[in-house]
């Protein structure tokens, strides 16, 4: 039971990390990046190349990975989102374009890195530590703490700073934001780059758990969107809570049914949550004005 709770929290943190990155892009453009899972996968691939294959020291490798993935995220923006202009709304265009980018990323990864999953060392070694009588990997603690820190960081940035204000303004209207002397383009690029950096960190944190391979985030990516929506899109508190909730419920359900149903259960939870409270746990329902 406690073991399930613990592994649920770890997976939940990872969903939350993805949800946070999905959120930051949503806050400024109003779109959901359906290629985000694949970007996380690329993060893991680059980390593997830099840290394991080339033997670059961990911290330097981490920084290199973050920079590379941030660049990938910015390229993604220019190729799949920018062409649709400033008014993105509910059009299918960006949805299909980001899905297409995901397919391209996966298949390039297969060509370059091969299809075999590879191992990645956990942070803090593989010795178990005991906290409150529960045996834990240090890596699991790192996952929780780093996710919490990133969630707090975004909560402050979006809620309390002028950058957060500008991000919210950009999502309302690019042209009015420009009239304030703010380059809306730069704001959007900043958000995409930030989402790339979190994706890189998420990639490194997931790798020891799932192994590194082109398909490693196939369903994790989708669950990240689920977590974001359960929490209320555009809300960092919600993304964090939504991720943890999804992870824990999933793990608890696993104690009752066979592991093969894991994803099915997770998506069922997600569908029920979306249908009951589409605005999310922390979202605000509003009556549409005519």
């Amino acid at each position: 039971m406690f073991q399930a709770l613990e592994s649920g929290m770890v997976m939940g943190s990872i969903y939350a990390l993805l949800a946070l990155a999905i959120n930051i892009i949503y806050s400024t453009t109003g779109i959901i990046n359906f290629a985000h899972g694949e970007i996380v996968m690329l993060g893991a691939m680059f980390a593997l190349t830099f840290i394991v294959t080339s033997g670059i020291p961990f911290l330097l490798g981490l920084i290199l990975t973050c920079i590379t993935v941030a660049i990938v995220a910015v390229i993604l923006y220019y190729c799949t989102v920018r062409p649709f202009g400033d008014k993105l709304g509910n059009s299918l265009g960006w949805l299909m374009a980001t899905l297409g980018a995901g397919i391209v990323f996966t298949n390039i990864a297969m060509l370059v890195f091969g299809t075999q999953p590879k191992a990645f060392p956990p942070i803090g070694g593989s010795e178990l530590v005991k906290i409150f009588g529960i045996k834990l990997l240090p890596h699991d603690i790192w996952v929780l703490v780093i996710t919490l820190l990133i969630a707090l960081f975004f909560n402050v940035v979006l809620g309390k700073t002028i950058l957060g204000n500008a991000i919210k303004a950009t999502s309302f209207s690019h042209s009015v934001t420009k009239l304030m002397g703010i380059s809306s383009q730069k704001i959007v690029l900043t958000c995409f780059a930030m989402s790339g950096i979190i994706a890189a960190i998420a990639g490194i944190l997931i790798s020891p758990i799932t192994f590194v391979g082109p398909q490693m985030t196939a369903t994790i990516g989708l669950k990240g969107f689920g977590a974001a929506i359960i929490g209320g899109v555009g809300n960092s508190k919600g993304a964090f809570a939504g991720g943890l909730l999804l992870g824990i419920l999933e793990a608890l359900a696993m104690t009752q049914v066979t592991p093969g149903y894991k994803d099915a259960i997770a998506f069922l939870i997600m569908i029920i949550a979306i249908s009951i409270k589409p605005e999310g746990i922390f979202g605000v329902a509003y009556e549409k004005k005519v």
Binding site: C79, W94, M96, G100, I103, N107
Partner: peptide, 16 residues
């Protein structure tokens, strides 16, 4: 093996 990459790129190009 490049088929799926072309397919993904086609998706992006067509919707744009």
């Amino acid at each position: 093996q490049y088929r799926l990459i072309v397919y993904g790129l086609l998706m992006i190009v067509v919707v744009i």
